[in-house]
Amino acid sequence: MRIFAYAVAGWLVLVGAMGILRSRNLIQATVSLSVAQSGTYVLLLAVGYQWEGAAPVFSPGSTPTSDVVDPVVQAMALTDIVVSATVTALLLALTIQIEKTHHTVDPDKLQQLKG
C-alpha cells in the first residue's frame, strides 16, 4: 500500500512535468506545475503515515498511548502549500500580463526570446 502512494507521488510529478512540456496554454502549464507539486504533498504525507496511527496531538501530563503519524512532514506539506499558492498566483498574474501584451497565451506563439 505504501508503495502505491509513492508510485502515485512519482507519477504526479512526471505527469505535471509532461503537462508543462506539451502545454499549448500557459494557464494549463501553471496548473500542471501545481499537479507536479501535488506529487510532493503525497510523498511527504506517505512518508509520515502510520497505519492505525492517531493524530499527533499531545497535552502536557499525558503520555501518548498509541502510535501517531509524523507531524514534521505535515508541517512541511503545509509550508509547501503556502509556497505553491504564492508561485501559482504569481504565474497566473504573469499569464494575464502576457495575454495583455502578446494577445496570446500559447507558448508556441511567444517568439520573443530566441537565441
Binding site: L33, V83, L91, T95, H102
Partner: peptide, 16 residues
C-alpha cells in the same frame, strides 16, 4: 513578462 514566466516555471519545477 515572458522572461519572468520562463524563469519562474523552470525554477519552481526544479525546486519541487
Amino acid at each position: 513578462v515572458q522572461g519572468s514566466l520562463n524563469f519562474a516555471l523552470i525554477n519552481s519545477l526544479g525546486a519541487y
